[in-house]
Design a protein around this nucleic acid. Sequence first.
RNA 1: GCGCGGUUAGCUCAGUUGGUAGAGCAUCUCAUUGACGUUGAGAGGGUCACAGGUUCGAAUCCUGUAUCGCGCACCA
Length: 724
Amino acid sequence: MDSKFLKPYNSQETEGRIYEAWEESGLFNPDNLPGDRPTPYTIMMPPPNATGVLHMGHALGLTVEDVLIRFKRMQGFAALWLPGTDHAAIATQARVEKDIAKSEKKSRHDLGREELVRRIDEFVEGSRSTIRSQIRVMGSSCDWSREAFTFDEKRNFAVNTMFKRMYDAGLIYRGHRIVNWDPKGQTTISDDEIVYEERKDKFYYLKYGPFVIGTARPETKFGDKYVVMHPDDARYAEYAHGQKLTVEWINGPIEATIIKDEAVDPGFGTGVMTITPWHSAVDFELAEKHGLDKEQVIDWYGKLLPIAGEFAGMKIGEARDKIIEKLSEKGLVDRIEDYTHNVSTAERTGGVIEPQIKLQWFVDTEKEFALDHSEIPGIAAGVPITLKKLLRTAVESSAISIVPEHFNKTYFHWIDNLRPWCISRQIWYGHRVPVWYRGEEIAVGFLPPGEGWTQDEDTLDTWFSSGSWTFSTLGWPEATKDLAKFHPTDVLETAYEILFFWVARMILMSGFALGQVPFRTVYLHGIIRDAQGRKFSKSLGNGIDPIEVVGKFGADAARMALLVGNTPGTDSRMSEDKIKGYKHFGNKLWNITRFILENTDESDPNAPLTDTDRALRDELDALAADITADLDAYRLYLASEKIYHYIWHRLADVLLEESKVIFAGEDETAKASRRVLLVSLLRSVLILLHPFMPFVTEEIWQNLEDTEGFLMVAPWPVPASPAA
RNA sequence: GCGCGGUUAGCUCAGUUGGUAGAGCAUCUCAUUGACGUUGAGAGGGUCACAGGUUCGAAUCCUGUAUCGCGCACCA
């Protein structure tokens, strides 16, 4: 027996060394795996943002993915887990701009586009290498030879190709539409990048000619020359659609036009409203419908424009009070009420969103097109379909299943509320919109030959590029071997928070580009909270750094703590005590090994098993089948607990205790049988525990005399069922 | 407002197709030079949020209520 078993298990000494050995073996790459492996099993790592360091959520994701990939690798699949990082355009640029502002007191405009992008590239390079090493620390058995970055040359080619194909199919268009404008970040953002903050404001009832209208935003009302009511509202039956009347307003009389539309809720307020098409999505649609004028009232920095007369140049907040003051003097304020509502703010900058009309690029999710090839059930090639329908069908047809299942409803609910997806951003870091202009000419996708072309200034929403992650990583648009073999992928494992941001966009892009689903299963994990149930945050300072935890307790312990009892889609709490418990477990296994080795020196491998021992062997085989079924059904929280429970409370507490009595007795047949049994059980539990605690199991395996090669590729005892 | 979840032991949470309520931690008792610096055996502790219903049988299925959390839409 190796003398190292005489001391407690030391994760610090072991884990780095084992990881290096795995990496050098080349076995993370499915091309190098032993035996004939016709069936692929693929997971694309959700690329962590290249903005900093890994947090507990990443650690959980990496652990779940690694358990699945190790399980399937041992089961004989050509297992590919492809790692990568995300350039996360807005987040990264915001981060670097902040750093520069702090250290050099310079803005991006001081630096210029080229220099800022160069600085960001530099930052990202450093950040990516940090992330790479952190992914390794968790024990992730991913194929580094295929590593990808959402903003490298290959991915840029894929993005430009995708843009061109969607443009040619009529699904991408440029238009003046209402967008979410972030005056602080000076960019548009998508609906999903908005966070709502509850605020208490005033709600003003203003006299507008013969009407009383309600508004929370008097500062937008200067241009309001349309007054809208429901056509069936008896109170206003005397007014006809299109009728004009002159009303006294903020800066004097204006001509108002009556519009009748069913969009107005007669039961809300007075049942009458005026509209501001430039600064409200609902009003914009009304204006489009009736062909009304639209006028900008607030500029790109949140200040009032000349239309506001004496209020021009004022910030919104300042103007609001003064306007009400003036209206009040003019006797036009009917009453003021308190009002609680949600204000839209930009997730990244905290700026209050100002809806604005802007010339932007959009993806149209309701326009019909046809796929020339489809493997998605319910969608036939050549038959007209919309992206919205595609998104729905992929999940409705069970081509994709979501774990836990109830997120299906959330997904459908989101699709039903989907609006055109604004994909252009006014930031400098990221894939630049692949469109070039020359006079009246426009070129899409790639820079055409010839002089005088100017590229669109905007960049693309980062989710536009990560939408193609499952296949751009495999070489698309080239028809590579990898693409043919590994796509569609098997599982997409991610946080439920980005179901829409990312998961839906991948379904959309994969469906459009390949006529395939991007993955067969979506496994959504919950948020990891602290012991008090709070979200980890910088301001609270309650973060548990996974890397620190691993240093202290080992990656194996951290992995188990993240897995056991943590059901998909449910938030869970993390405390050092829990992690410590599993460090103890690693040491328990270490000592079980020691006991078995000490008592089986003279083991005769050919000795027959007694009936009792045979039954004990069968018991573990049954457990193996059970654990396999749990893993196939994504019940990792049960599988991990079951093998833990067996090792500690069955193997150690019962079987080893019993064995002490047997070894102390006179029955040589029972002794011989028990030696064989214990060695056999030890080997089996190492295999079954390996996906969960890869380091300590591999280390023990390497130190057993009768084992060869890596535990990492030892055959799993239960073969894959044909259906799975 | 619409939708989705949670409510089970002091705490954190499991409970897969309905079949005698479980784990870890905590508490208490006992044992212990032992494979274990990190041990074992045992005990106490639960009207499974509440009210109805279906069923031979409900933590589990159905209806409703309360309460907490989340998502979406936000209404002029």
